[in-house]
Amino acid sequence: MIKQFLFLLIGAVMIVSCSNCSNNSNKKNVFGNTNDTVSADSALPVAPQAVENLVQNISSPVEMAALIKSLGAPFAQKYMAPTNTDNFNTSFSKALNLGIYGADLGYLNMYNKTSSVIQYITAIKTLADGISVGQFFDFSTLKRLATNNENIDSLMYISIHSFNVMDNYLRKNNRSNLSALMIAGVYVEGLYITTQVAKERPNKKLAENIGEQKNIYEQLLLILKNYRKDPYFASLIADLETIQKELDPVKITIEVGAPISIEKDGMLTIKQTSKSIVNITDEMLKRIIKQTEIVRNKIIK
């Protein structure tokens, strides 16, 4: 009797312990793998120093959405991916589209469109569960905040933090390939929404921002190419390289200057005086917009 009670107690403690796993990025993967088409073994050996130097935040939906909003562009549901997750049967497509929905969620949050948030967090939860990282996505809190239309700041914070925790967990548990796909998804959707806005509301600042993606794009491909032995990755890289081809003619020059530090009211501000000058023609922009549409629509199919 005592034995049975103790076993039950251990079981209960383990369950409680795991319900908080979302907050621990260092724990080992105790969950089974899904029907993986992407194996961690597909990664090429990369020197630890190179891995350390890989950019950890290629794209954040916050900055993309803030840019669009600052230009006065209204919210448009049509820019967002449909939330039909049934088509995503592999870990590869789940991770990639998890990133796509992550960018869409950032866009929704920035425009306070809480009524649509639930369908996106539901889709995110489904895909996250599909690659065994659903425990890091605080679905119930997000749902409550969105349903009650309360505390938009918390909604934004928990959404972004959940993605960061999922990303950290994947990196630290030898599943960086899935992390790379999530990053790629966020990036492609961000670029897609930005280019769609530029298509409908031509704007010099927006065009320059799109042109500047040339530099980020190289970093993204660098990360993905680490897994190019995997045929799914090879195919994605080939698709993304078609966008890179259109970004290539964009000319970016840098004016170098020394940073300026200003201290005011106890607050330190660093002003960068080095700046980039982006030369992008209307024709270049059109081609980038077109190619981004093709690649992104292929991903969400």
Partner: peptide, 14 residues
């Protein structure tokens, strides 16, 4: 020491 500092970014990059 400063708890925070702000950065005005003028160049997209790493």
């Amino acid at each position: 020491e400063f708890k925070s500092f702000d950065f005005d970014c003028q160049k997209t990059g790493a």
